[in-house]
Nucleic acid binder design. Structure first.
Length: 218
DNA sequence: TTCAGGATGCGC
DNA sequence: CGCATCCTGAAA
């Protein structure tokens, strides 16, 4: 029940200084943590998508489009990019060098702490449905547009070192069918077989990483 | 499977 | 103003 007392340690700025596609992979297995007055909630990142700035028609920052909303994507890596789509908040990790508007969308997490709080916020019993989508996980964690621009190296919203996935799959991104050729880029990544992944899709490629990398570590 | 909800940006 | 969108839950 009460999985309390887990200690999370925020990854430092250097972690985010890797190319966006690599960061999207490295984030898998890391822990996303949000603390509020209601309590702490955290989950393992199990699904990501890369959005690679000016040359990616699916990115908000395509063609260096710079608006009040996309402004934070031009910031140096390691801050939060939140925005509202329809009635849901989506959470991205800004990546790339300063003035390179790139980001990684967090699409799903696996709860590890504060599950009761997530159940309460989502208004439904515990199941994979709690956090298996980009709009669902923000609601479960209490992430909203007030987190826009927040450095992910600091409380109350941060990313901690976590686990090293044994296998990562990649495929086309979700929900970007009107983005021309970018539609087919295999820039979606997920932990192979994880039950919190938002949608089933045949992997174009499976990378077995066990013993090949360390996760956010030294 | 379809569809509305309703924030945000952008073109007309 | 009208329309599209990195989505979700409910209805059919």
């Amino acid at each position: 029940m009460a999985e309390e007392g887990l200690i999370f340690h925020a990854l430092d700025k250097n972690f985010y200084q890797q190319p966006t596609l690599e960061l999207a992979v490295s984030l898998l297995g890391c822990i996303l943590v949000k603390e509020t007055e209601e309590g702490k909630a955290a989950g393992i990142i199990v699904e990501t998508e890369a959005y690679v700035g000016p040359m990616d028609k699916a990115a908000h920052s395509y063609n260096n489009r710079r608006t009040k909303r996309t402004e934070i994507m031009f910031h140096e890596a390691g801050v939060a990019y939140t925005y509202v789509m329809h009635t849901h908040t989506l959470f991205n990790v800004v990546s790339g060098k300063k003035d390179n508007p790139e980001a990684v969308l967090i699409r799903a997490i696996e709860p590890v702490e504060g599950i009761d709080l997530m159940v309460k916020r989502r208004g439904m019993p515990e199941s994979a449905n709690l956090t298996n989508g980009p709009g669902k996980l923000t609601k479960a964690l209490g992430i909203n547009t007030s987190d826009y621009g927040h450095p992910l190296t600091e409380k109350p919203l941060f990313i901690s070192q976590g686990f090293v996935p044994e296998s990562i799959s990649s495929g086309k991104r979700i929900g970007i069918d009107n983005s021309g050729e970018a539609r087919d880029y295999p820039w979606r990544f997920w932990i192979t077989g994880n039950r919190y992944v938002s949608r089933h899709q045949n992997a174009e490629k499976i990378i077995v990483l066990k013993d090949v990398r360390t996760n956010g570590g030294t």
